[in-house]
């Protein structure tokens, strides 16, 4: 058998041995993790559905349409499976100065993080 053919076979076999070894180790490791993983998944499934509360004020139809678009984006971003848990309640606008103060404080904090 020529030298380069032997080297071809050796190289290919070594790569396959390595990958088979990795397969075995990962399968073993997955089985070990599966037991604790099952508990985690069960805990997630048994978790009570969280009521997602969004508070909106009484506004025009345009604003309602914009709010619904935000709700849809919120559902998609957070991977919420069912929209049934979303509750929209009417609310009263708080004083403008308090809202702006809060927004300013949050921005300052996030800049420092």
């Amino acid at each position: 058998m020529s030298g380069s053919l032997l080297q071809t076979l050796i190289g290919f076999v070594v790569v396959n041995i390595g990958m088979i070894l990795l397969t075995g180790i990962i399968m073993l490791f997955s089985k070990v993790m599966a037991k604790s993983g099952k508990k985690e998944i069960q805990a997630i499934e048994e978790e009570k559905p969280v009521e997602h509360v969004l508070t909106v004020s009484d506004q025009s139809e345009e604003v309602i349409a914009a709010i619904m678009a935000c709700v849809q984006a919120y559902i998609q971003q957070n991977g919420i499976k069912s929209a049934c848990n979303i509750v929209i309640r009417p609310a009263v606008r708080t004083s403008v100065s308090a809202a702006w103060s809060n927004a300013g404080r949050m921005e300052n904090v996030s800049r420092r993080v």
């Binding site: 071809t8 190289g11 396959n16 990958m19």
Partner: peptide, 20 residues
Amino acid sequence: NPKSFIIGAAAQLGIFLAFY
């Protein structure tokens, strides 16, 4: 699906045949 490792290994056949 750890069997993917072996499928990935088989696909390296091209490297060694091209070498030869």
